[in-house]
Design a protein around this nucleic acid. Structure first.
Lengths: 91, 91
DNA sequence: CGTGTAAGGAATTCTGACACG
DNA sequence: CGTGTAAGGAATTCTGACACG
């Protein structure tokens, strides 16, 4: 079970690829982190690393914002998701 | 079926992360590409992008080389694998 | 509030080549 | 044959700040 998700949660994607895949700007992606909506890991030198799950999450977030939902409210919703803790912690 | 492997084959990992995960040098990773053992995609600006499958493959290759098997022979073996074509083509 | 941008610096990656053997 | 390395350049990413509103 856990193994099936190893690729989904593993944080290995740099921010450039993320903006490519999500269509968001780096500014947006970093801001959602600042607001504790996503939790990238860092390389030794400080570069952000995201998971496939983060990619999906970011697109989800951006879509909600576009619909007028505020970031604080989005975070509330997210924190109730069952995979939330997992997302924050998995390497 | 195909969907289950989307994360496995998707090329999104830059070479720095790859060397981190595999323990190989960038030189080695690029050389195996030169010899047609792995097929990274490229970003618009030419940066290499690898998949999780590539990571596994690279470690497999390195291990075989360490055991004295020549690259040409390794390629022969690889080309017989059922997922070979898939690996070469998937975005 | 959420995002754009210019700024300066640091880390990453690229290619082609020389070296060893 | 497989890998290390120095070289020079180009692309990426980082942070903190100003701007709009």
């Amino acid at each position: 079970m856990i193994n099936n998700y190893s690729y989904l949660y593993k944080k290995v994607i740099t921010i450039g690829i993320v903006t490519e895949m999500t269509g968001l700007s780096a500014r947006q992606v970093r801001y959602y982190e600042e607001k504790n909506l996503v939790f990238p890991k860092r390389t030794e030198s400080g570069r952000r690393k995201y998971s496939f799950f983060d990619i999906k999450l970011l697109m989800d977030i951006a879509e909600k914002i576009k619909r007028g939902i505020q970031i604080d409210d989005i975070r509330m919703k997210l924190m109730n998701r069952e995979n939330w803790e997992e997302n924050m912690n998995v390497l």
